[in-house]
Design a protein around this nucleic acid. Sequence first.
DNA 1: CGACCATTTGATATGGATCAAGCGATGTGG
DNA 2: CCACATCGCTTGATCCATATCAAATGGTCG
Lengths: 229, 229
Amino acid sequence: MLMPTSLQKPSSNETRSGRRSEAPPDAPPLARAIEVIGVPMTYAGNCEIYGEGEPADHLYKVVRGAVRTSKVLADGRRQIGSFYLPGDIFGLEIGNDHAFSAEAITDSKVLVVRRSTLVGLASFDSTITQEMWKLAGRELARIQGHILLLVKNAQERVVSFLLEMADHTPEGRPIELPMSRQDIADYLGLTVETVSRTMTALDRDGAIHFLTAHSVMVRQRSALARLSA
Amino acid sequence: MLMPTSLQKPSSNETRSGRRSEAPPDAPPLARAIEVIGVPMTYAGNCEIYGEGEPADHLYKVVRGAVRTSKVLADGRRQIGSFYLPGDIFGLEIGNDHAFSAEAITDSKVLVVRRSTLVGLASFDSTITQEMWKLAGRELARIQGHILLLVKNAQERVVSFLLEMADHTPEGRPIELPMSRQDIADYLGLTVETVSRTMTALDRDGAIHFLTAHSVMVRQRSALARLSA
DNA sequence: CGACCATTTGATATGGATCAAGCGATGTGG
DNA sequence: CCACATCGCTTGATCCATATCAAATGGTCG
């Protein structure tokens, strides 16, 4: 069904102790700021991080795990807006309220900062403002890319999705797909069956090779990319 | 075909004389600023205003006519990003370059301002910055809405499109559709034939009534809206 | 009037949805 | 430790919405 099997509240508000190995000192100020002042939170799989319609006054950065943003339409269908993997920043909605809700896909750890805190910081460091604009720009570009995705055929959509996920993985390593086939289907505007069949076909044709249902090797990304136009 | 019949350069850089009847003195500062410092330009139908990949250093406001933003995909298909009608501001791309090109649909008049000019103004009037963010937010919301559109069926897409256009028209007046059926199809991710058939069906069922191919009366928008979910 | 182009309408094909069943992991209780 | 229920994924058979191909209609401009 569409309902997640469990939608519990955050499992724990993690202690702030411990090493913050992420974010090298030469990282951009915004990322640095989030590392320094962000409050770590952990969420179990399928746990809601924020809901559609709630005021958007926090910014989040994925440390571990994976997050999806989604929206349930009037007729019950679900549309997934984006997947966010470690290092990605999400929660930036320029309106006052979140248009999509966000849920942890697997057990996840995120850093949370108040939007107002960042706005305050921005008045000291104007590069933070610039970075907020850049972030908004990336978000815009991402969504525009999603539109272009949705007018392609099934194989092109699936391949585009795999290549997006590949961007977060060093060449030569298997690509991890933490989300379910249903999540992928709702992201691509297809059904689970079509996603599954398409992936099977790609595997059979040698374009990709599934190690498990959630781990796939791409031999030549450039070759795969030719199937996504 | 996909190629516009004529893609000429701006037909004339209109004289700056004459009344600027638009923008009441109580309009928001950004709109006011554009009215005051914007350079009027006129474009003939199918004339390119800016091209995909060009640096995005101007902001535009439609005074008269209609504008579409579009992108031609690798395989030759064309995706339309948005339609802009009088009063709408376009050209805001947060990246450095335009991801889509913009063309006048019919003979159009737009006001043009340099982005840098607005940035300069913003340092005097912080509400301008706020408005730029609001504008970016509206753009983001518009694109997100477009994604939700693209996962609906043909009738829902067409109805949603008509309702969007209706937003620019006072209730009770016919809705003008300056763009071609091909433009509509490329916006909705459908074919011309499907758009045409769907509109014919809506007319036959009494949901809407075409006066001409480019002018349509909607009896009850609320009733029509029920067909768009 | 006649040429041209946009739009509509008709006939047919097809990609992906839907319905249904099988399969393989994972977890649970006896 | 094993039977068995459960859940997510895959596979198969069929259907249907929309694409595609083709032609008729109608509006516009010389």
